[in-house]
Structure formats: structure tokens, C-alpha cells
Amino acid sequence: MSTAPTATPSVALQDVSTAGRGDSSGMIERPGIGFGRLIRIELRKMFDTRSGFWLMMSIGILSLIATVAVLIFASDESLTFESFATAIGVPMSILLPVVAVLGVTSEWSQRSGLTTFTMVPRRGRIIAAKLAATVLVGVTSMLLAVGLGAAGNLLGATIRGVDLTWGLSIAAVGKIILANVLGMLMGFVIATIIRNSAGALVGYFAVAFVLPTITGILYGTQAWFRDISRWVDFQANQVQLYDGAMEANDWGYLAFTGFFWLVIPLFIGVRLAVRSEVK
């Protein structure tokens, strides 16, 4: 007769009851799932869905249209590397944060969290992997935009018979990449707080496009807001990165507002995501 111990009903019920709460600390995480593997999984989940596929298709199509428009309509003087890189990068900067939003909210909106958080009960690791994947996509996509912009510049100069004009320094390219990564992080942060695809998308577009309009009106009409705008307006400090000229105080304003617009909300969002119930 076998004398191997068996789990008591109370222990089994305890393991099951912890499956949908918090960090699911009562569950045992499957071995062999390293953080690098989690990042690769999250990258694949961003793009192998129908929404992710069509988002990438939209970015590619819009970038192609913008490049062709530069080739056709730009004057010889404006046919530069910066023009092509901007034409390709603008659609990316608008749509890539949507990828970041859906990468987070899919666990709650599409019920994939039941599987994800069962395989890896420590939700903090999953969110950290999503964050790393978001940054990686942001950097890679902007490097791709720079590469395609360089190719478009070479092609445009050859077709139009004009001299090559580059214009953007490596430092300027780095600031543009940082600005776009910050935009993706804003979408990521909003998604961790709301955790609903429709609501998070509305929230992101409100912050990215409606809020700057409001702050712009306040800046133009209210003297008190002009005095404090650099301390509270994160989007304005982020746009400063595109201008290329960043003094020490500009970096300070960006860091200060980024802390309050990104770091603190991210902490709150992660706490809510870790403790929320997945149905």
C-alpha cells in the first residue's frame, strides 16, 4: 500500500482561491520562465493579434504614403534626411503608444490574463516584461524610422538629382527616440491604471492631444500658468526634445514633470494591476 502524502482538501482549496487575487502568492510559478523569455513572449503578443497586425500595417502604409508625399511634393531645399525621417516617424509616434496600451489591457479586456497569471503568478514580473517590451519597441521602431529616412533621402536625392542633405546629428536623433519612448510610456502608464482597452485609448488620446490644447490656451491667456508651465506641462517639455536645443534646466523640467506624470502614476497603476481581480 502506498504511503505517499496527498494534499488535503483545505490546501487544494487555498491554492485555487489564490488564483485570481493579487500576486497569486499561493501558487507556484512554473520553472524555467526567465525574464528574457517573458519579454519575447510579450513582444509576440503585441503583434500576433489582429489588432496588433493591423496597427503595424497601418504604420507601414502611412509611412509609405508620407515618404511618397515627400518625394513628390517637397521642394529641392526641403528634400532632406530630416524630412523623410519625420514623415516616417510621425505615424509611428501616434500609433505605437496604442500598441503599448493594448499590450497591457489585453490581459483584462481579452481575458488572456487568466492564462498569463496562472503561468506566471507574480504579476509584477509580467508588467515589468511588458514595460521592457514597450521600451524595446519604441527604440527599435525609431531606429527603423531613421534607417528608412536615410534610405529615402538617398533615393530622393538620386531621383531628383539634388545634393544629399542630412541635417540631423546623432544627439538630435537620440532626443527624438527618447521623446517617442516617453510617448509610449505615457500610453503604458494609462493602461496600467485603467486596464480597459477602450477606456485606456480614450485616456491616452485625451492626454496626448486634448490636454496640450488646453494647456496651450492657458499659456496664451493666463499669466499665472506661463509662470509655472515648465513645472507642470510634461507634454511641452517632451516636445522640447524635438527642437534639439536642450539646456540643463530643460532636462531638469523634463525630469521633474516626468516623475509626476510617469513615475508616480506608474507606481499607482502597477499596484492596482497587481491587486485587481482577473475574470
Rank of each mutant, 00 (worst) to 15 (best):
L95T: 04
A132T: 14
I126C: 07
I94E: 05
M142C: 12
A100S: 15
S106P: 00
S109V: 10
M92N: 11
M92F: 11
R111G: 09
G138C: 09
Q110L: 07
L102M: 15
V135S: 04
Q110M: 09
S93D: 06
F117S: 02
T116H: 05
R122M: 10
A133V: 06
P91L: 07
V120L: 06
S141M: 14
V137A: 15
A87M: 01
V90P: 02
V98F: 11
T118C: 05
A100F: 14
P97S: 10
F117P: 00
T134F: 00
T115R: 01
W108Y: 13
A100Q: 11
E107S: 07
W108T: 05
L95G: 05
S109I: 06
P97K: 15
R125G: 06
V98S: 03
L131R: 03
E107G: 02
L102G: 08
F117M: 06
V99E: 07
K130Q: 15
V99A: 15
G113D: 13
L102P: 00
S112L: 10
V90G: 04
L136I: 11
Q110A: 12
L114F: 12
R123E: 07
V101R: 04
G124M: 01
E107Q: 12
T115W: 13
P121F: 07
P97G: 09
T116L: 07
R122P: 00
T118P: 05
P121K: 07
G89S: 15
V99C: 11
A128G: 12
V135R: 00
T115D: 08
M142L: 15
S112K: 06
V120F: 05
T116Q: 13
G103M: 12
A133D: 11
L143Q: 04
I127G: 06
A128K: 07
R111Q: 10
L114G: 00
S109F: 09
G113T: 03
L136F: 09
G124Y: 01
G138Y: 13
L131Q: 01
L143T: 03
V98G: 01
L144Q: 03
V99I: 15
P97E: 02
S106Y: 01
L96N: 09
V135G: 04
S106Q: 15
L95I: 14
S106L: 06
R125D: 13
I94K: 10
S93R: 14
R125E: 12
V90T: 15
A100K: 11
T118G: 14
S141G: 15
A100D: 12
G138K: 09
M142A: 10
I127Q: 09
L131D: 09
A100I: 09
V101L: 03
I127T: 08
V99H: 08
R123A: 01
R122I: 07
M119N: 10
L114Y: 08
A87C: 02
V120E: 05
T105M: 08
S141Q: 03
R123Y: 07
V98L: 12
P121Q: 05
V99K: 06
L114P: 00
I127Y: 15
R123C: 08
I127E: 08
A87P: 00
V135Q: 05
L131E: 08
L131S: 08
M142Y: 14
K130I: 08
I88K: 01
L95C: 02
V135C: 06
A87Q: 02
A128F: 11
S112M: 12
P91Q: 11
R123Q: 01
G113M: 11
I88E: 05
V137T: 10
T115C: 02
A87H: 04
L143P: 04
L144N: 04
